[in-house]
Design a protein around this nucleic acid. Structure first.
Lengths: 108, 108
DNA sequence: TAAATAGATTTGCAGTGCAAACTATTATTC
DNA sequence: GAATAATAGTTTGCACTGCAAATCTATTTA
């Protein structure tokens, strides 16, 4: 019980979902980025980006800070330690799963 | 335009979704497997597995063959050449995206 | 023959992604 | 200086999706 594929099927969708995977991965190299910048590099629509950030924030993977800069509202998104940990772990898990899958043989 | 993260956000959900990623990856090493075996190794419920297989079959990534073996119905699922190509490509793409993301720097 | 088991599909619904619509503020044009 | 457009972001609405419960068919057991 608990095969590679069982683990694969159970991957955390909150992180695995493409748009959030992109946001978190970007932030893991950036550490912080503002809303507009994230929108530019991910190509997501504003509405979509906004709701994905909310979900990540609800889960404590990113933190959000709103300011006014040059008379413009400015939303800064930062990855939290938990978020950093989670995204790094997710990529490692994917690599590990892929490797295990390649080595896998039936009837184990 | 067309940054790493844009590509990441655009990953093909049909393949990327955890349960289907598990099914396709398993089949890519097995080549063929029957319904019950797939259910065992992925840990998916029968209903879930059935609908995921249908989606993969609709997309031409797997083919399904139904027989009666030892007076029991038996559903054999095979990965198609297109499916094999797609899953291999997906894993390569993930690896490539991760690498590119690590090397990535703003203002490119 | 009634009940249980096996193999698989269909149904129902909660949850999700996402674009359109909306709000609020600042800048520009006439 | 009113109207219009642009900027920054959120909310709404809905089509889609994953998934377990319910269902169906065929076989085996009591």
């Amino acid at each position: 019980m608990g095969s590679v594929f069982e683990e694969m099927a159970g991957l955390d969708r909150l992180i695995h979902e493409p748009s959030r995977l992109a946001i978190l991965t970007a932030l893991s190299t950036c550490q912080r980025a503002d809303f507009v910048f994230l929108q530019r590099i991910t190509g997501l629509t504003g509405g979509n980006l906004s709701s994905q950030i909310s979900k990540l924030a609800d889960a404590g993977l990113v933190s959000v800070e709103k300011k006014i800069i040059a008379k413009r509202s400015n939303t800064l998104v930062q990855i939290t330690p938990r978020g950093q940990e989670a995204i790094e772990q997710h990529w490692q898990q994917l690599e590990q799963l892929r490797k295990s899958a390649q080595e896998w043989k039936p009837k184990s």
